[in-house]
Simulated assay, not measured.
Amino acid sequence: MAEALIAQMLEGERQLQHMLVSRDAHTAITQILVATPAWMYNKGRWHMESVNKVAVGHDQPGGKVSLIEIECGAVNYTSHSPDVHSDLLTNPCPIFLSSIIRPV
């Protein structure tokens, strides 16, 4: 029997985490992509980039921060603080690592 390929659009790390923990033996996740808005890189369009890592932690004021490391090594944060850095996050909790998925 041929395998069915399904693409799903998720919103946020909670949905990603749910998908990762609820998959069964018949479900394989082969790639995670993030849509990056044009303003983040001063480009004229959005970009789809492969994700290496997703983690959640808290910044110095105690706000929740998502960290998304993309394939090229750049790290994007959901914090509005310009001083946020992965070393400054407290209670970092990995949600996804690219090593847990298998290529097609």
Rank of each mutant, 00 (worst) to 15 (best):
R14K: 11
S66C: 04
E69P: 00
L97F: 05
A74D: 13
V84Y: 03
V84E: 01
I68Y: 02
N42V: 15
P92H: 02
G44R: 09
H18K: 14
M19E: 02
I100Q: 12
I100T: 06
D83E: 14
A7T: 10
R14W: 04
H85L: 07
D83M: 14
M19R: 08
G12M: 11
L20E: 00
Q8Y: 01
L97E: 10
H85D: 12
H85I: 05
V104H: 06
Q17D: 14
V54Y: 01
W46F: 08
W46A: 04
A25W: 03
Q60G: 06
A2M: 08
A2C: 00
K43D: 12
E11A: 09
E11H: 12
L20T: 00
L16Y: 06
P94L: 01
C72R: 11
A28E: 10
P92L: 01
S50F: 05
V65F: 03
D59T: 06
M48K: 12
A28W: 09
E49F: 08
T30N: 15
T36H: 02
G62E: 01
S99V: 09
P82H: 03
M1P: 04
Q31R: 10
F96N: 03
A25S: 13
P103N: 10
A74T: 15
V65W: 08
S98G: 03
S86I: 06
V84C: 00
L5R: 11
R45Y: 05
L16N: 05
D59G: 02
V21I: 08
N42M: 13
Y77Q: 03
E13T: 05
E69D: 00
E69C: 04
P94M: 05
H47T: 15
I6C: 00
H80V: 08
G62L: 03
I6A: 09
A38F: 03
N91I: 04
Q15V: 10
M48F: 13
I95S: 01
E71R: 10
